[in-house]
């Protein structure tokens, strides 16, 4: 599979509709493609190019800029170990090496069973909880080597399926803007001053704040 499914095309169109210009939806749509396939397939990028009206090269230009988009299949679980400064001084590199050793792979690669990919990543905004990591972008704070091994076992056994969806899925709740209550996208052309800017009573002549 590679092009978006019919359901996802419907979703893609809803997402595109939220933005004043279709290309703004590109990153959300790349996430959608990654959610569908676990990575961003070449065909998916071509499909997105059609959907937002740009060339495939432009889609790839955007896609390849961002670390999270994988253009080749990765493990079902992507484990990102932070080694940035706050984690580094609290054992982040050791944690990474432990992960590499216990999974038998180098950072940046995937276990032969296709289950785990390990990456060494930059600061993930959990510095006070060092050392830390994410599995498919779900946090594990102050994790010891033993806890790491237990986590891997749990993942392998499917015990964390509720908490950790397969790679590609981020938020499991989607924003939905009901048509009835939507204000509508702020279009670029022909926009006028919003009504509320002037609809309130004018400031009193005197004593107005400086």
């Amino acid at each position: 599979m590679a092009r978006l499914t019919v359901d996802n095309v419907v979703l893609a169109k809803e997402i595109i509709g939220r933005y004043p210009r279709p290309k703004s939806a590109l990153i959300p749509l790349l996430h959608l493609a990654q959610e569908q396939d676990g990575y961003v397939a070449t065909d998916a990028m071509e499909h997105l190019a059609e959907l937002v009206g740009v060339t495939p090269a432009e889609v790839l230009g955007t896609c390849s800029f961002y670390e999270m988009f994988k253009r080749e299949p990765v493990g079902r679980y992507v484990i990102n170990v932070c080694t940035n400064i706050a984690c580094q001084i609290m054992g982040g590199e050791e944690l990474l090496h432990h992960a590499e050793e216990s999974l038998g792979i180098r950072s940046g690669s995937t276990t032969p069973d296709g289950l785990f990919t390990v990456e060494d990543v930059e600061c993930i905004a959990a510095c006070t909880e060092a050392p830390c990591l994410q599995v498919n972008y779900r946090y594990r704070h102050r994790i010891s080597h033993d806890q790491f091994d237990r986590m891997v076992d749990d993942l392998r056994a499917g015990r964390l399926d509720d908490e950790v969806p397969p790679h590609g899925t981020l938020a499991r709740t989607r924003q939905h803007i009901p048509n009835a209550t939507a204000a509508g996208p702020g279009f670029v052309e022909g926009a006028e001053e919003p009504v509320w800017i002037t609809s309130r009573p004018a400031p009193p002549k005197e004593g107005a704040k400086a």
Binding site: M45, E46, T55, P56, A57, E58, V59, L60, G61, F65
Partner: peptide
């Protein structure tokens, strides 16, 4: 049809 790809010191010009 040609575009910057990748990022930072690995940035390159390429096609799809």
């Amino acid at each position: 049809l040609i575009h910057f790809m990748d990022r930072g010191n690995e940035t390159q010009v390429n096609t799809f």
